[in-house]
Amino acid sequence: MPESETQHTRHSVTVKAPAEALFDLVADVERWPCIFPPTVHAERVEQNGSEERIRLWALANGEVKSWTSHRSLDRERLTVRFRQEVSQPPVAAMGGEWVFEPRSDQETVVVLHHDYRTLDDAPEKLSWVRQAVDRNSAAELGRLRDVMEQNDEVGTLTLEFEDSVRVQAPPSAVFRFLEAADRWPERLPHVSRMELREDAPGIQQMEMDTLAADGTTHTTKSVRVCFDGRRIVYKQTQLPKAMAGHTGEWLLREQADGSVLVTSRHVVLIDRRGVAQVLGEKVTVDEAKAIIRTALSRNSTTTLEHARRFAEERSDG
Rank of each mutant, 00 (worst) to 15 (best):
241 K>W: 06
225 V>I: 15
216 T>C: 04
237 T>G: 02
222 S>L: 10
218 H>N: 11
212 A>C: 10
225 V>T: 01
220 T>Q: 04
234 Y>F: 14
247 T>A: 00
247 T>D: 03
211 L>W: 02
230 R>F: 11
231 R>M: 07
223 V>T: 13
215 G>E: 12
229 G>E: 06
220 T>Y: 13
232 I>M: 06
221 K>Q: 08
240 P>Y: 05
218 H>I: 15
229 G>H: 05
236 Q>N: 10
215 G>H: 08
219 T>K: 03
220 T>L: 12
230 R>L: 14
237 T>E: 09
212 A>E: 13
242 A>F: 03
211 L>S: 10
247 T>P: 06
235 K>N: 03
228 D>T: 14
224 R>C: 09
213 A>S: 14
216 T>N: 14
214 D>A: 11
245 G>Y: 02
231 R>L: 15
223 V>Y: 04
234 Y>R: 11
222 S>Q: 07
234 Y>C: 08
230 R>Q: 15
228 D>P: 01
240 P>W: 01
228 D>W: 00
213 A>W: 09
238 Q>F: 00
226 C>L: 15
221 K>S: 12
221 K>V: 01
226 C>W: 01
216 T>G: 12
227 F>V: 09
227 F>Y: 11
248 G>L: 06
245 G>M: 03
238 Q>Y: 07
233 V>H: 09
243 M>P: 06
241 K>S: 12
211 L>I: 12
236 Q>W: 08
215 G>F: 13
247 T>G: 06
217 T>R: 13
216 T>A: 14
211 L>F: 02
235 K>M: 01
222 S>I: 06
